[in-house]
């Protein structure tokens, strides 16, 4: 069982990387990856909300499915995420000032981050158990962090290069993302080989 969880975690981090292989959470990936520390702040906030959202939506999903209301998943999940983000923001602001100052500005952006809704939907779709869901979400979050940090480094290098005019801004960023994503393709098979 533990082996399965480890394999699930690394599959979510490397081969099934949310940003680079599944294209979830592209907006923050392109928008907030200019500096390493903002990239880390955003990723930590995403991991936090992902884990919380999974812990809350898993029992709710079980309830919905037992009542034959599985079609309500999307609505319920997005409302849970929106409410959670608000709640976390209020709690952090009130009680944990230091954490709020470092994560606070990223929180409102997370409601519409497709990586968060994506991971809870994927967990429900694959019918994962509670622990597996949590492991998958943490893996997805860790993968997001990894991609963001690597990419922030790549973008730092790009700032001082001479880029053709039409490619300046987003186009060259996407081409760079393509190369980073290419390197992640190299992980294909490794996870299965090591942990299977």
């Amino acid at each position: 069982m533990t082996k399965e969880w480890i394999s699930l975690f690394f599959a979510a981090v490397l081969t099934g990387n949310f940003v680079l292989a599944r294209f979830l959470g592209i907006c923050p990936f392109l928008g907030v990856s200019k500096k390493v520390n903002t990239a880390v702040g955003m990723s930590l906030a995403v991991i936090f909300v992902m884990a919380l959202a999974t812990a809350v939506t898993w029992p709710l999903n079980a309830l919905l499915e037992s009542k034959g209301l599985a079609y309500l998943q999307t609505i319920v999940f997005i409302l849970v995420i929106a409410a959670l983000v608000q709640l976390v923001e209020i709690v952090l602001k009130r009680y944990i000032k230091a954490l709020y100052q470092s994560l606070g500005i990223y929180l409102p952006l997370i409601t519409t981050n497709c990586a968060v809704l994506g991971v809870v939907l994927l967990n429900a779709q694959d019918g994962l158990g509670f622990v597996s869901s949590m492991v998958n979400s943490l893996g997805a979050g860790a993968g997001f962090l990894l991609a963001m940090v690597i990419f922030a480094g790549v973008r730092g290098r790009m700032e001082h290069s001479d880029i053709p005019k039409a490619f300046q801004g987003l186009p060259i960023t996407l081409v760079a993302a393509s190369i980073v994503s290419l390197s992640f393709l190299g992980f294909g098979g490794i996870v299965e080989q090591i942990f299977a």
Binding site: F167, G169, P171, L174, V175, S181
Partner: peptide, 16 residues
């Protein structure tokens, strides 16, 4: 996936 990023980037550059 890498092709997706690449083609998308090139199309936006073309539109620019």
């Amino acid at each position: 996936p890498p092709g997706g990023f690449f083609v998308c980037g090139c199309m936006i550059a073309l539109a620019n």
